[in-house]
Nucleic acid binder design. Structure first.
Lengths: 351, 351
DNA sequence: ATCACCTGTGGGAGCGCTCCCACAGTACCT
DNA sequence: AGGTACTGTGGGAGCGCTCCCACAGGTGAT
């Protein structure tokens, strides 16, 4: 008993009870003040706030989580290895938007990588333990079981980039189809006729939609789509290089390339350079993402801008709403919430 | 009461008590099994494990945290805006090492940015609430109050890159002095005589130590140190550009530059190019960090490699030890723990 | 004066664990 | 035979909150 008591005193952090005693009120009243309940008189509130300040009281999160059955934390789950996370500016922008929006609240953000199998198992445990109130899912592949796990566990979740047109989770996306179209329309407008496309990973829905936009823009302009001008990439620089090499082998006289990401465009550019092809004189190049890479490339890269930061912000908005509603929108029979934000083509010297 | 009961049933997650009932043992025994105590007979352990599997039991972290007064989480605190975090490969490598080492344990990693004042205030609250068992501090400036806050709150912490020679926190560092020396010795060995240095931010101890190494290497080789050949940078590309411009203005005939980071070397390279100076023919260039930038630069950049991933791993080791010891080493009167890892010069075409 | 209905408040019960004391049973000494 | 020591186990108490019921005291309608 004595030992036990000593343990509990360690650190000497003040508790609600102590604040209550100091302010001369009950425990419940202090709790109400801390949580901003309106049902407290001004005088009492002031007294409690003074006691809190004097004692340097900070609520014990664990106790609160246990009693209230919530954690005040949400996770940003990245189903990729760290490496890609840092290599792609997409994540950095997303994190910025998320962080900005979240800083308005009392919620804490956890960043969780789930690239390897081992990490995924850990994540599953983590989610099963309900250690977060909600989850933000970015860059999810079509066959990923994660979203289903989430709905099964009834954890509120928002996905950036739906897995398919029939996505069941609440989602935020940019208009990939329109983005793909605008890239092609831009190149056609500049008089290009043989336009190749290096796609992103095709198990990413957004990458598919860009291809759709690419095809439809060509068709609507009266062109026949030459499938040998479409080469799948994987969003990496090396993949862009490989795809470009492939394309030049099959269609040496192409006069434009639309890459599904700036990083892949950078890879493509290297190959074009090595072959002595000038940008944009011989081959026009358009990227996707409008990242720092695009601005710093030589020549500067025309690129399709996605409002990624904005997407991050919207995701948080939607997630907080779902958490407030205390269960996923689906199970409440509400309409699926899907938000699509516009893209914008940023013309530069490469096209 | 009924309502309350309903609330507690929500989600229907099994508790320790239920597992105990199922296994036909007491609560304490289940707890022992879950926590890997050796004081359980094999038969009992098997029975409990079966019950856990059948029920899909996952411990409630909040309850555990409240009862045991620990969180099983540690924070990686980055006192910089997100932007820099992503721009510098240093952090990415560090995170990789930290993540790898941590995945061996049951600990959770939180990534916390504290670039703005607002974020810092949030962090202070966060730490005061003891929401993590320990803290990893990277890239801390000499006048940062964070380390002191940490010792005051008696939160175990390990710092990467001590703030000064008299750092009180447990620290892990690479041999910046030796790294600086090796860069200069390398350049001298290649016959260079007028070697400039673009430093990192001088409120970063490691950057200072590199300058010390630079100076001593020159002196030991019988040179007089020309202070006009030393220009402070700030670890950014733009800073490298500015410093290089400055240096060329003062010492147009310099024949080598040692930059305190690869990113700054990239900035310096741009300026050299613009002035028509060839690398390495006219000016040799050496960077620091041996990042992807160094390998991909044209020409490839000679650079000093720091074992950053390894540093991340060591930091975790030390931190976990301190946490296990339950209080900072300092207050136990132990020797300060300071670990210094060797650097290695990686020669490439730029020098 | 009586009743209904507010507002503000105190405090019991409970969240799901960990810690530790108590105790039964067994083994090995003297 | 009694003592000592160890092993394995059950369960009480407590961690610091939130939730909610109960209730005092006020206000206004009847």
């Amino acid at each position: 008993m004595a030992t036990h008591g000593a343990r509990s005193r360690s650190g000497g952090r003040p508790t609600l009870e102590e604040v209550a005693a100091r302010a001369g009120v009950g425990r419940g009243t202090v709790s109400r003040v801390i949580n901003g309940s309106p049902r407290v008189s001004d005088a009492t509130r002031a007294a409690v706030e003074a006691a809190v300040a004097e004692l340097g009281y900070v609520p014990n999160t664990a106790a609160r989580a246990l009693a209230a059955n919530r954690t005040d934390a949400i996770a940003l789950v990245v189903p990729e290895p760290e490496t890609r996370f840092f290599a792609e500016p997409y994540f950095s922008d997303m994190l910025k938007g998320v962080g900005a929006e979240l800083s308005e609240t009392h919620m804490q953000l956890l960043l969780i990588f789930a690239g390897s199998d081992r990490e995924r198992r850990r994540l599953a445990q983590y989610l099963a333990a309900h250690r977060v109130d909600g989850v933000l899912l970015v860059s999810v592949h079509a066959d990923d079981p994660l979203p289903d796990l989430l709905s099964q566990l009834e954890i509120p979740a928002v996905i950036s980039g739906p897995r398919s047109a029939a996505e069941t989770l609440t989602s935020v996306d940019s208009d990939n189809y329109g983005g793909g179209r605008s890239a092609v329309e831009h190149l056609l407008g500049r008089g290009r006729r043989t336009i190749a496309h290096i796609t992103g990973r095709l198990d990413v829905y957004g990458a598919q939609r860009r291809v759709d936009g690419y095809r439809d823009a060509l068709r609507d302009a009266g062109h026949v789509v030459d499938e040998l001008l479409v080469e799948p990439g994987d969003f990496t620089e090396e993949g862009g290089r490989r795809a470009m090499t492939e394309l030049l082998g099959r269609r040496p006289h192409l006069d434009a390339v639309f890459a599904g990401s700036d990083v892949m465009a950078a890879g493509a550019r290297q190959v074009l350079r090595e072959r002595g092809l000038r940008i944009p004189d011989d081959v026009a190049l358009v990227g996707y993402d409008d990242s720092a890479i695009a601005r710093h490339m030589d020549p500067p890269l025309t690129s399709v801008r996605q409002p990624i930061e904005e997407m991050g912000r919207r995701m948080i908005d939607l997630l907080l709403t779902e958490i407030a509603d205390r269960r996923p929108a689906v199970s409440r029979g509400l309409e699926r919430r899907q938000m699509v934000l516009a893209t914008e083509l940023v013309p530069r010297a490469s096209s």
